[in-house]
Design a protein around this nucleic acid. Structure first.
Length: 513
RNA sequence: AGGGCUGUAGCGCAGUCUGGUUAGCGCGCUCGCUUCGGGAGCGAGAGGUCGGGGGUUCGAAUCCCCCCAGCCCUACCA
């Protein structure tokens, strides 16, 4: 076998041992996912608490990036943050019939406090519709109090049977928007508006393409009239429900007696919505971009944009190299990455890795952490007034080692990040296209979902829950959503892929996380 | 919740079947010297409730019981 001359050959032979091993995706995708999280120092399983995770600083910093961008978008659309109790009186949960049925199996309940049994147990919130409904009832009495647009950043707990880091943990961090409106039309507009906020965020900030759609009756939120969602394709062809936006109708308004007096003086129940995204997004980020060398981060969610690795041998070189590193960092520090009309200013985050270990070891480490840009500064570079640049992933934003005049590099840095961001989205979209198929026969369908395989399949469906369940039972694939206008193939009638009965349009089917 | 696999140092593992002195190995970690543009070399070190509890035994990482946790497959699930 011919030996590759590229450095990658040597690297592969040494992946176990120093640091941990990252299992290649083709070998074992779930193991790869866990390896990336461990080696990227994103999180670890709590172990001492079932199903929970410890989010480590680098992982949490990504969540903070996500939070900050979304928070600005919520405020931009008129929402205000508030905070409600973690514990909810058990009786609240039971007030909305469908809601309690949906959540009862996964509730954690506090039965004792202060050394005594509680008269009425508290539920640890799995979501806050009920307790927020209670307060909405107190806050709303007139149409002048509407719309009421509230968001909460919080943790919630759902006792899931099976957990996976970031994707489904017992406790997770999220935001939940809760709004109340005087008409159903207005509430529906809000539901759509926030779904689009999520969709835009996923694509623009996370560089994660999504399909926007409507959940089927069996997949919708417990207690909602309907649920909109964004579904993101992962590298293994499975779908990740990355965000949901629910039309709650008047269900919770009735359950919690949230009434308002209209302009005409009539009493009516409010129309409510709720919408949320969670730390699951971090899992989606990992499975959208990362590779066998570890984490890959789009610049807009990267806690660190660039790492500078000083290269030197002799003591007298050291000072000059460190000085150059400090100068380059200072120049990069000044670069403003803020988006137009942003509520917050964002500057380039740079780390100079001056630890006394060999450069190669640093390269591997920062690659595993997903830092977009690596800069090497050595005596030769200083002599030539240049920097050596290597992007985390080869794209149009940069390929291989580039040697660039320092001033040009600084001047082009923001553009480089923007292009890299765009390239990651382009690559993800291309992959989505290759994973997306239009299927018309059940044989094709069975083949596409054989074993552990999954694709994004556009198929006709007769619209019945029975067929939906049959598809799931036979293939483990589920109807992810009925696409919104502009998503997926243009609607045209056809025949259900399983039953042959008439279908008005194709729906998205995939295995799901 | 059912089935399977697993739990020994930070990470990855051997040892368990067939019980027996101070529980090993690789990497990582600490110190020293030489090194430093893709995971350095040599030398000297540190680091362990063998997941937890109970039992059998002269003696348990090893055998038995219970529990906890993780991974995979079902089932369940915004």
């Amino acid at each position: 076998m011919a030996k590759g001359k590229g450095s990658d050959q040597g690297a592969k032979q040494n992946t176990d041992g120093i640091g941990g091993k990252i299992t290649p995706r083709e070998e074992d995708y779930p193991q790869w996912y866990q390896d990336v999280i461990r080696e990227g120092e994103l999180a670890e399983t709590a172990k001492v608490v079932k199903g929970c995770m410890v989010i480590k600083p680098h992982g949490y910093a990504i969540w903070e990036k996500i939070q900050r961008d979304l928070d600005a978008r919520f405020k931009e659309t008129g929402h205000r943050n508030a905070y409600f109790p973690l514990l909810i009186p058990q009786s609240f949960i039971t007030k909305e019939a469908e809601h309690v049925e949906g959540f009862a199996p996964e509730l954690a309940v506090v039965t004792h406090a202060g050394g005594e049994a509680l008269e009425e147990p508290y539920v640890i919130r799995p979501t806050s519709e009920t307790i927020i409904g209670h307060y909405f009832a107190k806050w709303i009495s007139s149409h002048r109090d509407l719309p009421l647009l509230i968001n909460q950043w919080a943790n919630v707990m759902r006792w899931e049977k099976r957990t996976r880091m970031f994707l489904r943990t017992t406790e997770f961090l999220w935001q939940e928007g809760h709004t109340a409106h005087s008409t159903h039309e207005e509430a529906r507009a809000e539901v759509e508006r926030m779904l689009n906020v999520y969709g835009d965020f996923a694509e623009q900030v996370m560089a994660m393409p999504v399909i926007r759609g409507v959940k089927t009756e069996s997949e919708k939120f417990a207690g909602a009239l309907s649920s909109l969602c964004i579904e993101a394709p992962m590298q293994d062809g499975k779908a990740l429900q990355a965000g949901t936006s629910h039309d709650l109708g008047q269900n919770f308004g009735r359950a919690f007696d949230v009434q308002f007096q209209s302009e005409e003086g009539k009493l009516d129940y409010v129309w409510q919505t709720s919408w949320g995204v969670s730390t699951r997004l971090v899992g989606g980020l990992i499975m959208t971009h990362s590779d066998d060398a570890g984490l890959v981060l789009p610049p807009r969610v990267a806690p660190i944009h660039a790492v500078i690795v000083p290269i030197w041998r002799k003591a007298h070189e050291r000072d000059a190299v460190f000085e150059a590193c400090a100068r380059i960092k200072a120049s990069l520090d000044e670069i403003d990455l803020s988006q137009p009309r942003s509520r917050y200013r964002d500057f380039v985050e740079v780390v100079v890795d001056d630890r006394p270990i060999r450069p190669g070891a640093k390269f591997y480490e920062w690659e595993r952490r997903g830092v977009p840009v690596r800069i090497e500064v050595g005596p030769k570079d200083i002599a030539k007034g240049q920097v050596c640049v290597r992007m985390r992933v080869d794209t149009a934003a940069g390929t291989g080692k580039e040697f660039i005049p320092e001033a040009d590099f600084i001047a082009g840095f923001r553009g480089r990040l923007d292009l890299y961001q765009a390239e990651l989205l382009r690559i993800a979209r291309e992959r989505m296209e290759t994973q997306t198929v239009t299927l018309d026969t059940w044989d094709e369908f069975l083949a596409a979902f054989a074993g552990d395989a999954s694709v994004f399949a556009w198929c006709h469906w007769d619209g019945t829950a029975e067929t939906e369940a049959a598809i799931k039972e036979q293939t483990k694939a589920t109807i992810r959503c009925v696409p919104l206008p502009g998503q997926g193939p243009a609607p045209e009638p056809g025949k259900c892929i399983l039953t042959g009965k008439p279908s008005p349009q194709r729906v998205l089917i995939a295995k799901a996380y």
